[in-house]
């Protein structure tokens, strides 16, 4: 589903986040990306979601080189991907419902269908009763689950998560990971950047280990 071919990313100022990285992620897989801070985990996810463009190389998603995708087609590409962030990136002046509904509104979904789909997504992350709440009144774990509900409400084929458990204690982290496993069981391709090695070992999924922007280990679990 995703193939990187000798991808490099150099930021203005000269820092090279990824160097000649090549890898492949099959459809329907559940893959962890690990490595120290600054190893290039976030950059890898950003390139796949086309939040950034590579300096060199090809990023193929379903055979399409998105590194060359024209600007006006970037939003459509991002809408096909569910993206989850460490800091949740929720809108705090809106209710949980409105936050989760946002991707549907952006995609121009039928407004009569939005409430049903938002509730379905909230139900899957176990937050059905919290529609009217403001994100700020929820715990960090709950906020992350709102972020996940927002990522899956459009039923994307691919979920990218950047340190989704970075701010959570071990129990909550495990809970969130089990949530991802449930989406994986329904056929969604999952790619999670994390440095929670204990959890990664426990869950036994394929691991891509990055160091200084290079692939150092590919563990098929």
């Amino acid at each position: 589903m995703i193939r990187l071919d000798r991808v490099s990313k150099r930021y203005p100022g000269g820092h090279e986040a990824l160097t000649e990285l090549s890898l492949e992620i099959p459809r329907g897989s559940f893959t962890f990306i690990t490595g120290h801070s600054g190893a290039g985990k976030s950059t890898l996810l950003k390139l796949i979601a086309l939040l950034e463009r590579p300096t060199r190389g090809q990023v193929l998603v379903d055979g399409c080189n998105i590194a060359r995708l024209p600007r006006r087609r970037i939003p459509a590409h991002r809408r096909r991907i569910g993206m989850i962030f460490q800091d949740h990136r929720l809108l705090h002046d809106r209710t949980v419902f409105d936050n989760v509904a946002l991707p549907l509104v952006i995609a121009g979904a039928d407004p009569r269908e939005i409430p049903r789909r938002v509730r379905a997504a909230l139900d899957r992350v176990g937050l059905l009763g919290q529609e009217r709440a403001r994100p700020i009144t929820l715990s960090s774990g709950e906020q992350q689950r709102v972020g996940i509900a927002r990522a899956v409400v459009n039923r994307p084929d691919l979920l990218l998560a950047d340190e989704p458990t970075g701010n959570l204690d071990p129990d909550l982290s495990r809970e969130i990971m089990h949530l991802f496993e449930r989406f994986h069981a329904r056929g969604t391709t999952i790619l999670i950047a994390t440095h929670d090695l204990a959890l990664v070992r426990e869950l036994r999924h394929p691991v891509i280990r990055l160091q200084h922007g290079r692939l150092v280990e590919r563990d098929a679990a």
């Binding site: 096909r80 993206m83 990136r89 946002l102 952006i106 927002r150």
Partner: peptide, 11 residues
């Protein structure tokens, strides 16, 4: 945030 989740420039 809206851009991250795929909003067009027009949106």
């Amino acid at each position: 945030v809206t851009r991250l989740i795929g909003a067009t420039e027009g949106f």
